[in-house]
Amino acid sequence: MTIRFDDLPEADQGLLRSRLVAVPRTRRGVLRTVLGAGSAVALGTFTLINNGAQRAAAATYFNDWTSTSSGPCGAGGYASGHTEAGATCGPSTPCYDRTCCWKYHNGAGNRVGWHTQGPGRGSRYYTHRPDACYAGTYDSWHWRFSDGRTYRCSDGWTCSTTGGCYRSICPWAV
Rank of each mutant, 00 (worst) to 15 (best):
residue 82 H to P: 03
residue 72 P to R: 14
residue 45 T to S: 03
residue 65 W to Y: 15
residue 90 G to S: 09
residue 7 D to H: 13
residue 119 P to G: 01
residue 139 D to P: 06
residue 82 H to F: 00
residue 10 E to N: 14
residue 27 R to I: 03
residue 23 V to Q: 15
residue 76 G to P: 10
residue 77 G to Q: 05
residue 100 C to W: 02
residue 169 I to G: 10
residue 41 V to H: 00
residue 91 P to H: 06
residue 164 G to R: 11
residue 2 T to H: 11
residue 165 C to L: 07
residue 131 D to F: 10
residue 53 A to K: 13
residue 159 C to R: 07
residue 143 W to Y: 15
residue 125 Y to E: 00
residue 122 G to R: 04
residue 74 G to L: 10
residue 172 W to Q: 00
residue 153 C to V: 15
residue 164 G to N: 09
residue 9 P to Q: 10
residue 141 W to K: 05
residue 54 Q to L: 13
residue 97 D to Y: 04
residue 66 T to M: 09
residue 158 T to I: 09
residue 46 F to D: 01
residue 54 Q to F: 07
residue 174 V to F: 01
residue 50 N to S: 11
residue 103 K to V: 02
residue 88 T to N: 07
residue 69 S to E: 14
residue 162 T to Y: 07
residue 82 H to Y: 01
residue 61 Y to Q: 13
residue 3 I to R: 09
residue 47 T to L: 09
residue 134 Y to S: 12
residue 7 D to I: 08
residue 165 C to D: 01
residue 167 R to I: 02
residue 104 Y to C: 00
residue 10 E to G: 05
residue 83 T to L: 05
residue 51 N to W: 01
residue 46 F to V: 01
residue 133 C to M: 02
residue 156 G to V: 13
residue 28 R to T: 09
residue 77 G to C: 11
residue 174 V to E: 07
residue 95 C to V: 02
residue 95 C to T: 03
residue 129 R to L: 14
residue 111 R to D: 02
residue 11 A to W: 07
residue 115 H to L: 11
residue 117 Q to T: 11
residue 174 V to L: 08
residue 117 Q to L: 11
residue 43 L to G: 00
residue 52 G to A: 13
residue 155 D to W: 10
residue 70 S to Q: 14
residue 104 Y to T: 10
residue 138 Y to M: 14
residue 148 G to L: 05
residue 12 D to K: 15
residue 78 Y to N: 12
residue 126 Y to H: 12
residue 139 D to Y: 09
residue 40 A to D: 02
residue 123 S to V: 08
residue 91 P to G: 13
residue 145 F to Y: 15
residue 112 V to N: 06
residue 21 V to Y: 08
residue 46 F to M: 00
residue 72 P to I: 12
residue 49 I to Q: 04
residue 25 R to W: 02
residue 23 V to H: 11
residue 167 R to V: 06
residue 134 Y to T: 13
residue 128 H to M: 07
residue 60 T to Q: 14
residue 133 C to K: 09
residue 6 D to Q: 13
residue 13 Q to K: 13
residue 160 S to T: 12
residue 145 F to A: 15
residue 166 Y to F: 12
residue 151 Y to M: 08
residue 70 S to K: 15
residue 139 D to K: 12
residue 44 G to N: 06
residue 65 W to K: 04
residue 158 T to F: 01
residue 20 L to F: 07
residue 65 W to R: 10
residue 119 P to H: 13
residue 150 T to N: 05
residue 8 L to M: 04
residue 74 G to K: 12
residue 15 L to W: 13
residue 148 G to P: 07
residue 174 V to P: 08
residue 42 A to S: 03
residue 153 C to G: 12
residue 52 G to L: 13
residue 168 S to K: 10
residue 138 Y to T: 10
residue 1 M to V: 13
residue 32 R to L: 14
residue 152 R to M: 10
residue 14 G to Q: 15
residue 101 C to T: 09
residue 125 Y to W: 15
residue 162 T to V: 03
residue 118 G to L: 04
residue 163 G to Q: 06
residue 132 A to Q: 15
residue 149 R to Q: 11
residue 144 R to W: 11
residue 96 Y to I: 01
